[in-house]
């Protein structure tokens, strides 16, 4: 990597991992527990697609609807910064996913086994976009309601897709889940090379 010509400080190389899953599944907790700084939220505005859906009749003040994107950062080394972006939980914000996911190293799809179908849109998206992803069952209260093989069957993901359990409240556990994503991405990258 070249150095900037002027005296400007060198910018880190940004690398991105997406944290996806249904509403209330622990995405923000996951990002927050490992981020260097408290998670930040940026707002993205409604596009025309949603503008149509969200038209609320004669409410003149309602000109925009926003969707929050939570994200955190981890400085991995001197020149490398990892960005963790959470996808908006609701299906109807799916149109934003491309913006969030384009160029991602991989994705962590968080699953609550009591509401398995909440993660279907994420699984569909990453399969279609060919972004390496890992299914991570968040162990609420340390219990697994279904075995991982049952989860794999229910989600109909192929055998190459790693399935793991983790605890979104534990920094080490989140780190290990992210490492699983990286190793899966590495396998995919070396196979393609």
């Amino acid at each position: 990597m070249g150095y900037p010509q002027s005296h400007e400080p060198a910018a880190p190389t940004p690398i991105k991992i997406v944290v996806a899953g249904g509403f209330g599944v622990g995405k923000t907790t996951t990002v927050g527990v490992i981020s260097d700084t408290p998670p930040l939220t940026t707002e993205a505005a409604m596009t025309d697609v949603a503008a149509h859906v969200d038209r609320t009749g004669d409410v003149p003040d309602k000109t925009t609807t926003t969707v929050a994107i939570d994200f955190g950062t981890i400085r991995l080394d001197q020149g490398l910064k990892l960005y963790l972006f959470g996808t908006p939980g609701q299906d109807r914000f799916g149109f934003m996913w491309h913006d969030i996911c384009v160029g991602a190293l991989g994705a962590l799809v968080i699953v609550d086994t009591r509401r398995l179908d909440d993660c279907y849109p994420a699984v569909d998206y990453f399969e279609q976009a060919r972004i390496p992803f890992v299914i991570a069952v968040n162990l609420f209260h340390g219990r697994l309601a279904h075995s991982l093989e049952e989860v794999r069957w229910a989600l109909a993901v192929n055998g190459d897709t790693p399935l793991t359990t983790f605890d979104a409240r534990s920094r080490q556990s989140v780190r290990d889940a992210l490492l699983t994503v990286c190793r899966h991405a590495l396998q995919r990258a070396t196979a393609a090379a």
Binding site: K16, I34, D77, C182, A185, L186
Partner: peptide, 17 residues
């Protein structure tokens, strides 16, 4: 994002946490 050397660097960085 698909460069094995870069992914290995991310793995090293994460492992140090």
């Amino acid at each position: 994002a698909t460069d094995p050397a870069m992914i290995e660097r991310v793995i090293r960085g994460l492992s140090a946490i």
